[in-house]
Design a protein around this nucleic acid. Structure first.
Lengths: 194, 194, 194, 194
DNA sequence: AATGAATGAGCGTTCATTCAT
DNA sequence: GATGAATGAACGCTCATTCAT
C-alpha cells in the first residue's frame, strides 16, 4: 500500500505538472488528486523539489530500461536505429512523460546534479554508442558532448512533434524521415542514408 | 525616461528569470532590482504573464533582426550557413537570452499564441528558406514542421552547449562541427558536407 | 495611517501572546484581530520572530522612558526607591506588558542580541546606578551582572505577584515590603532599611 | 525496557525543549532522537502537554528530593543557607533542567494546576521554613507569597547567572555573594549578614 | 508494549495585483 | 507616469495525533 501511494503521487504529479506547470500544480492539489493526504506527499518526498527530481529521474530510468542493450557485433547504424525506434515507440506510448521532459529539462528547479545523474547514470550507454561508432568510423568525429546534445535534442524535438501531430506519427514515411534526419546529422560521410 | 524604465524592467526580468525561474522571480523583486516601484512594472505590463510574453517576443525579434535577409540568387547551403553563423554569433553574445529561450520555450506559461507569433511572424523566413531549399532539391523532402523543429532544436542545443562550454565555443572546428551536424541533418543527398 | 497599523499590530500581538502563547497566537489571528490583512503584518515585520523581538524591545524601551533620570546629587537609596516605585507604577498600569516580559524573557525565540539590546541599550542606566552605589559604599560589592540579575528578577517577581493579586497591590505596606526586600538584597550593611 | 524508554523520552525532551523551544521540538523529533517510535511517545504521555507537565514536575521533584529536611532545632539562617547551597549545587550539576524551569515557568502551556502542584506538593516545605522563620522573628514579616516569589526568583536568577558564567560559579566569593543577597532580602533586621 | 505510515488542520510566509497619492 | 503600502488568496510545509499491525 505504501509503495503504491508513492506511485500514485508520482503518476498524478506527472499529469498535473504537464497540464498546469510546475508551480501551477500545488502540492495540495497533487495529493488530493492522488487520493492521499497532504502530509503523505511529504512523507514520501521531503519537499516539492525532491518530488520533481524523483519524477524526472524515474522517467529517464523508465526510458533507459526500454532501450535495447548495446551489442558490439552490430553496425552502429543498425543499433542507433533500433534504439531510436524503441525510444520513439515508448515516447508515443507515454506522451505526458515526454512533455514533462521537454518542458522541464532546462528548468532552474532541476539541479545540475539531477541532470547529471539522468545523463550519465541512466543514459550513459548513449555515450558508449557514440564512442564506439566514432572508433569504427561510422559516426562523424565531433566532440562527444556535442553529439549527445544533438542526439538528445533531435529525439526530443521529433517526439514532441509526433505527439502534437498524432496523425503524422502513424505515417511510416514521417517516422523514417525523422530517423533519417537524426542519423544523417551524426553519421560519417559514406555511412549516411540515401 | 518611461521607455527606459520599460527596458530596465525587461533587462532585469531576463536575468532574474534565468537565475531563479519564472516563479522564483517575484514581480516586486524584479521591480526593486530594476530600480523602479512595484506599481511601475504594472504600468508597462498588464500582468506578469504579459511581461514574460513580451520578453520572449522581444528576444525572438532581436534574433530575427540580426539574421541576413533571404536571397533567391544564392545556394540554400550558403544561406543556411550564413544564417546559422549569424544566429550563433548573436547567441554567444547574449547567453542569458538563449538560456531564457531554452528554459521557457516549452513552459505552460507561454501561450500557444505567443509561440505561434514567435515562430511565424518573427522567424517565418526560416520556413521560406526550407520551402525554397526543398523546391530546389537541396533539402531533404520531409514535412516542413518536422524540418523546422529539427532546425530549431539543433540550433538551441548547440547554442546551449557552446554557452555552457565557452572554451569549446572559441574553437572553429567545433563551430564547423555543429554547423555540419545541422546542415547534414536537413540536406538532400548530394548536397551534404564531406 | 501606516504608523498606526504597525502599532495596532504590536498592541494586538501583545494581548494574544500573553493570552495564548507565542505559538498559540497565529500571525493570521493577530492580523485579523488588529484589523489588517495578513500581508500587512509581514510588510511591517519581516517575520514572526522579528515581531516578537520588536514587541519585546518596545516594551523595555517604554519602561525605560518612564523611569526618572539618574542624579548624582541624591543618595543611592533614594534614587533606587524612586526608580522602583516608578517602574512598579508603570507595571501595574500595563499588566500585559509585564506578563509578556515574564513569560518570554527566557524564551529561546528571543535571540541573545535582542536580550542584550534590552539590557544595555534601554536599561543601561541601572548598571550605572549600581556602579555609582558601589563606589559610594551604599551598595554591596558583588559583581555587577549578579546585582543586575537580582534587581531584575526581584522587580519582575514582585510585579507579577502584584498583578496576580490586585488586592495586595493596593496595600501600601505590601508595596513597602516588596521594595524593602529589593533594597535589602542589594544594600551594603549600614544602609539597609530597619 | 518500558520504564527506560519513558525516561529516554523525558531526557531527550528536556534537551530539545531547552535548545529549540517547546514548539520547536516536535514530538516526532523527540521520539527519533530518543530512539523510539513516534507512537511510543504517546503510549507514555497522552499528549505533548502531558509530556511537558511531567517533565516539569519531575524536575521540581528531583530538586526537592535533593534538599535537606527541615529541622526545628536549627536557626533559620543556617537551614536556609544549607538549602540554598544544596539547591545551587544541584542546579550547577543540571544546567539544562534549570534552563527548562527558567524558560517555561511562566509559559501559558503549563497549566496553573501543574504550577500549583510544583509549588505546594514538591516545594511546600519552603513555605514551612518561611513561616517558621517569621514566627521566630528571624525572617521579615512580609506576606508568605511575596516571600516565596522573592526566594524563588532570586534562586532561579542566580542559578541562571552561574550557569551562563561558569567561571564565576567556581568562585566561592561569588557564591557567597549570591547567597548573601538572598538571605538579606528576606531576613529580619538583626539577623542579616554583615 | 511498540511501531511508523498516514492524516489534515493549521501554520508562517509569499506575491501578483490594486489604488490613493 | 510613478509610487509603495496594503491586500488576502494561495502556497509549501509541519506536526500532534491515530491506528492497523
Amino acid at each position: 500500500m505504501s509503495a503504491s501511494k508513492r506511485q500514485q503521487i508520482l503518476d498524478t504529479a506527472l499529469v498535473l505538472f504537464v497540464q498546469q506547470g510546475l508551480e501551477g500544480a500545488a502540492t495540495a492539489k497533487i495529493a488530493r488528486e492522488a487520493g492521499v493526504a497532504t502530509g503523505t506527499l511529504f512523507h514520501h518526498f521531503s519537499n516539492k523539489q525532491a518530488l520533481i527530481a524523483a519524477l524526472y529521474l524515474e522517467i529517464k530510468q523508465e526510458l533507459a530500461d526500454r532501450l535495447p542493450a548495446l551489442r558490439a557485433d552490430q553496425p552502429t547504424r543498425e543499433m542507433a536505429c533500433r534504439m531510436w525506434q524503441a525510444a520513439m515507440a515508448w515516447a508515443l506510448d507515454h506522451p505526458d512523460k515526454i512533455r514533462f521532459l521537454l518542458a522541464y529539462y532546462q528548468s532552474p528547479v532541476l539541479t545540475p546534479a539531477t541532470r547529471r545523474t539522468a545523463k550519465f547514470d541512466t543514459l550513459g550507454f548513449v555515450l558508449e554508442l557514440i564512442k564506439m561508432g566514432q572508433a569504427r568510423g561510422e559516426l562523424a568525429p565531433y566532440p562527444h558532448e556535442l553529439m549527445m546534445e544533438a542526439c538528445h535534442s533531435l529525439f526530443m524535438a521529433s517526439a514532441g512533434y509526433f505527439i502534437d501531430h498524432p496523425e503524422q506519427a502513424a505515417d511510416p514515411r514521417q517516422q523514417e524521415g525523422a530517423m533519417a534526419i537524426f542519423w544523417n546529422a551524426l553519421a560519417a560521410p559514406g555511412h549516411r542514408l540515401p
